[in-house]
Design a protein around this nucleic acid. Structure first.
Lengths: 319, 319
DNA sequence: TTGAAAGCGCTAACAT
DNA sequence: ATGTTAGCGCTTTCAA
């Protein structure tokens, strides 16, 4: 049997008789034999896959991120993809399921804080865009900087009363965006008027509904600009605002976080902070490979970049 | 050791002494033990995952499709995701790699014809949107109907000279779209002017570049409407056409295939044929589960739906 | 009620 | 150069 193993993997350094080798190769091809990579990793103690947990697979943000991961791991590892069934946000159970795969490493993309709190590391792990005191590798997304960039941009345009459409307010990445933005606005003498999106689900309709619900409040507060926690919500805001007859950015500026590729194409093109999804994926995979090979954990930071487009403009003269 | 196995899986029908059971549970919790699901499936002969091969993970079409698959498989199986590194289209090697996973089943999303030709089934398999004479389960996407729907719509609007931006012309799903559309246009006495996109890569820039390159030809042919093989290409076409000063749909109608969620939001909203990505995923997973459980293969068809929006309008009076 | 032993598909060390 | 054996982490007989 060892001969078969050697031939299949081309690991016979000429050690196998040409005739035997030929017979084996014929059998392999006739039977259409596929070596079971898992059985292989069971014995070699080098699993052939890594698990990736993402809150959603519909949000193109995670598609970009996955593309980055795939690019780095190449054919060295295969990916076990874990996504919560309810789309958006996951509990510890799904992380545990991921850990039960025969994996060399694990990537957790923006885990909720409660999930992270009950997390215990069982293999090299990289946590993306979340915070923990544990000795685990992390890729920090500098969302505070993102909030500052957006805040400064709006303040420079003259906006002082800013509406905010929050999302999953208990998740650090979102509360940081809101707070960093609010700090800049308040420092300029303005105010941030927060209106949380109620659902865990992130789609355009959520943005539309949230805008309908919150606009009366925002209007009463003299809001001239609205920021959404994610581009997808901003799409809904713009859609509904335009349906209600407001022109963007003349009547209302709209901006958000993420910069998925379509944000440059909606009308008007959306001002947003590029959260570098692809870069995040690249770094995560690099750090994970490193953690697997050298058994070290590390933390690195990715800085977002403001993309100014047509959806934000100077505050109109007069309230 | 068998006691451990029984306790961990809650399969001891009261057969294990309470004390032993407690000791085992304590050890499990202290060690943070994770049973290796692969080792389990190695012996039980019931693999816990299925492999899914998609040409790209950035195209939201496949995100929607995956969401559908995930929804059906629930926690019964986990997903091994395979994506070619160069984004877009894959060879037999990646399929073979997928088959080497310890899997209960395999889903191949829009495989290229050449890949399909050298495919040999090694486990329950579902092929999405591609054609083969093999006895393999398939989900057929009725792209011929899609082409007819779009063709009829344009003909009714008065268009007779239609430009077409093709993609991967050697792939059946794309050649069928083109031919079905062309048949309707020609039947109405018109002509389809084809211009293949050269790259395998699908992004907005490809659409822009292709439009710049092909517009002189199309203009010379008196084209009043352009259809792209995929929404993403249409975004590029609209972007560049508008930059060149054309208004859509007054000067030029634009339409395409896919209907990813953002197509309703671009400006003008894009007329496109909904290729039912999510439904495709649901059906694929259902058929696969069936193939795994009952060892039967089946074929089912999903019908696309035309979504008429603002990007198409009546042909101008004149030339 | 519990433990010992065989075996899932493979690889690596060893014996022939 | 080739065959035999042990063992990876688990489950499932089967014996104690």
């Amino acid at each position: 049997m060892s001969a078969v193993s050697l031939v299949v993997r081309n690991r016979d350094g000429g050690r196998i008789n040409g005739d035997l080798k030929a017979r084996i190769q014929k059998a392999v091809s006739d039977l259409d034999y596929r070596p079971n990579s898992f059985a292989r990793s069971l014995v070699s103690q080098l699993p052939s896959s890594i698990s990736v947990v993402v809150p959603s697979i519909r949000n193109p943000f995670f598609g970009e991120m996955l593309e980055g991961i795939l690019q780095v791991i190449g054919t060295r590892f295969t990916i076990q993809l874990h996504v919560p069934s309810e789309d958006m946000d996951y509990g510890i159970d799904i992380v545990r399921a991921a850990q039960e795969d025969n994996i060399a490493g694990l990537i957790l993309a923006t885990p909720p804080q409660t999930t992270l709190d009950s997390f215990r590391q069982t293999c090299p792990t990289v946590i993306l865009d979340a915070y923990t005191a544990m000795d685990v590798s992390r890729i920090e997304l500098n969302v505070v900087l993102a909030g500052h960039q957006l805040g400064r941009h709006l303040v420079e345009l003259g906006h002082r009363s800013v509406g905010y459409l929050d999302f999953l307010p208990d998740k650090a990445t979102f509360s940081c965006r809101r707070e960093a933005l609010g700090a800049v606005v308040r420092q300029a003498g303005g105010a941030l008027h927060n209106a949380p999106a109620p659902a865990e689900y992130l789609d355009i309709e959520q943005g539309e509904a949230a805008f309908s619900r919150s606009w009366p409040l925002w209007e009463a507060a003299g809001v001239t600009a609205i920021v959404a926690a994610d581009d997808i919500l901003a799409y809904g805001i713009m859609k509904r605002a335009q349906e209600m007859g407001m022109t963007i950015p003349d009547r209302l500026s709209v901006a958000s976080f993420n910069d998925i590729p379509f944000s440059a194409l909606v009308s008007p093109a959306l001002t947003t902070v590029d959260l570098r999804a692809h870069e995040l994926g690249l770094q995560a995979a690099r750090v994970l490979l490193d953690a697997i090979a050298r058994e070290v954990s590390s933390v690195c930071t990715v800085d977002p970049e403001l993309r100014v487009r047509r959806s934000t403009g100077s505050r109109r003269a007069g309230p």
